Simulated assay, not measured.
Amino acid sequence: MTNSADKHQPSDSADSARAQRSVPQSDPSDLRGSDGSLRRAVVHSVVTAGFSIAVLLVAAASSDTLRTALLLAAPAIMLIGGLTALVRTYLAYRSGRRWGVWQGAAWFLLCLALMLFMSAGNVVLKSE
């Protein structure tokens, strides 16, 4: 006859499977980590913003049709950079690394993309 307490105890294989599924958590506000994620997030944001500003400068010196296309491409570049930072946030979270810096970079780039979409849309609609 078996003991009823033995039936309710999980097996060792179930414990190991549960441990493999759990995601290790890190502190998102820790800015002194040595994994270099803060530097990579800042470089990603600066390169994305710089490329978008360069596209805006080329748009200022171009003709009407090209100007319209470039004025719409600049915020799209920011949007793609922000979405890429969100993907990097998720990947860092899943691997247990610092994900807060990537989330900050994503919000920064998405806010810039929104501002550029609003200003570029105003310029494009007034020019036609």
Rank of each mutant, 00 (worst) to 15 (best):
Q103I: 04
F51A: 04
G96R: 00
A59H: 02
T2E: 12
V87H: 03
T89H: 08
Y93A: 11
D27I: 07
G100E: 04
L91C: 10
E128A: 09
A14R: 14
G96N: 01
V46F: 01
G104L: 12
R97T: 15
V23S: 02
S34P: 12
D27E: 08
M115E: 14
F108E: 04
A76D: 06
T65H: 09
S62E: 03
G81H: 08
L72T: 05
R21A: 05
A69N: 03
I77D: 09
V123C: 07
F51V: 02
S37N: 01
V42M: 11
S11A: 13
A60H: 09
M118E: 02
L125Y: 12
L116Q: 06
L71H: 02
A92I: 09
E128K: 15
T84Y: 01
A74Y: 11
S22K: 09
T84K: 05
W107G: 00
A5P: 03
G100F: 00
L72C: 06
R32D: 08
S34F: 01
V43L: 13
V87Q: 11
A41P: 10
A54W: 14
W102G: 10
Y93G: 08
N3Q: 04
Q25F: 05
V101H: 01
N3F: 00
W99I: 05
L70P: 05
T89W: 08
S127H: 15
A105L: 02
S29G: 08
T65M: 04
I77N: 09
K126D: 15
S22I: 01
H44W: 03
G33Q: 14
A69R: 01
G81P: 00
S22M: 05
S62W: 00
A76Q: 06
M118C: 11
S22V: 00
H8A: 12
T65W: 04
D35I: 03
L66N: 09
L125R: 15
G81K: 14
F51W: 04
A120M: 11
A5I: 14
S4K: 11
N122R: 12
L83E: 14
S13G: 06
V55A: 14
V87A: 12
S11D: 15
D30R: 11
H44T: 07
A17G: 06
M1E: 03
V87L: 13
R97P: 13
L56W: 10
G96S: 00
K126V: 13
S4H: 11
S127N: 09
L79A: 03
S13V: 14
V87S: 05
L71G: 08
L79M: 09
T48H: 08
